[in-house]
Write a protein that binds this DNA or RNA. Sequence first.
DNA 1: TATTATAACTAATAGTATTAGTTTTGTCAC
DNA 2: GTGACAAAACTAATACTATTAGTTATAATA
Lengths: 197, 197
Amino acid sequence: MHKGLTLQQIIEQAARQVEEDGLHNLTLTALADQLHIKTPSLYNHIKNMNDLKNRLASFSLAQFSEALIHSAMGKARDDALFAISDAYLTFIKTHPNLYWAIIEVPDPSDSDFKKHSDRLLTFLFQILEAYALNEEDRVHAVRGLRSIIHGFTSLQLHHGFNMHHDQEKSLKWILSAFLRGLKEKNESCDGAGQPTE
Amino acid sequence: MHKGLTLQQIIEQAARQVEEDGLHNLTLTALADQLHIKTPSLYNHIKNMNDLKNRLASFSLAQFSEALIHSAMGKARDDALFAISDAYLTFIKTHPNLYWAIIEVPDPSDSDFKKHSDRLLTFLFQILEAYALNEEDRVHAVRGLRSIIHGFTSLQLHHGFNMHHDQEKSLKWILSAFLRGLKEKNESCDGAGQPTE
DNA sequence: TATTATAACTAATAGTATTAGTTTTGTCAC
DNA sequence: GTGACAAAACTAATACTATTAGTTATAATA
């Protein structure tokens, strides 16, 4: 047989199966079965399992970036950031296993993966340009945003917070606090604040 | 042979091997080899691989909690929180693979694991009691703290930020911003702040 | 139509967790 | 001490993994 199967189709099928069954239930046998080929035939398209997971991570990250960037269209500052965090939460809720594929990418320095990750980073930098921060502070601020959103969502995804209080409200609350603190840095209206120690 | 091998010894050996070779290089064969027993003998002590990983996660989390709680001894408020974040970073740097074992725990609802995780959470709550927050806000604040520290460290651990700027300084900067925003919430000194939109 | 590269195949291997059934060994009541 | 019992080791076997080597069929091309 000679199906002319394409790498793209393989990745997409892998993504479907991962979405359904989770990343660590992805096996070459199951993947080949769904594609109606024999397992070793996959090696005509991929180097090995790690390679497949890298490509799957890139694929997922591309969709993810797209969703985030799209969500902030025509918005700026806090508005944009809240939209992004909403999109982030939405993606995690609708594609938890794909997000996990991004987190567990075997080789984060893979060139294709890095391309998409850099794109997302640059995008965040641009959003933060609207705030009056010097170069170094902006680096810190971007790291802060990523940390907050990724940390919140991945904790929720894997470990779950106690569900008594609303999730989305929490994330918004946290982001608001961070942004308040970020703005206040330049203004130093802290004269009357509670003493630090 | 009848070595009288104990579960504790097995977990500790597993921890040693994971620290050295990473979580996904932990195999029952390798573990049994190092313990000088045959692979199936492990099943006298553990239920299966998942069970082993759960126990390993609990073991790691216990050490982790201990380190964090210890670091805040005799401190309060910002002082305590910065000490905790330092301890957090230190743990991740010295035991990255054990931290990963905590993150990748197969069953986060495992009772032993939950025990330690609740302990850590309660501890954070107590620290935050020193800030003037109502019940709900304190929930948000604890989530924020966890998200920031976990998010920052796990991003750094797995994907790495660009190393041009200092890591610890970044985390301190981010935490400071969050804490500023947290304090400001009650004070509403925001009259002259930059407009939100 | 002949050539060639692609993409499928079959067959085989080594490494994985796991189960079943057996044997050894330490412990403890008598 | 001796015998009963349970704990903890063992051997042997199974079912899945990924992966490699070598082979065959097909599609495109010259």
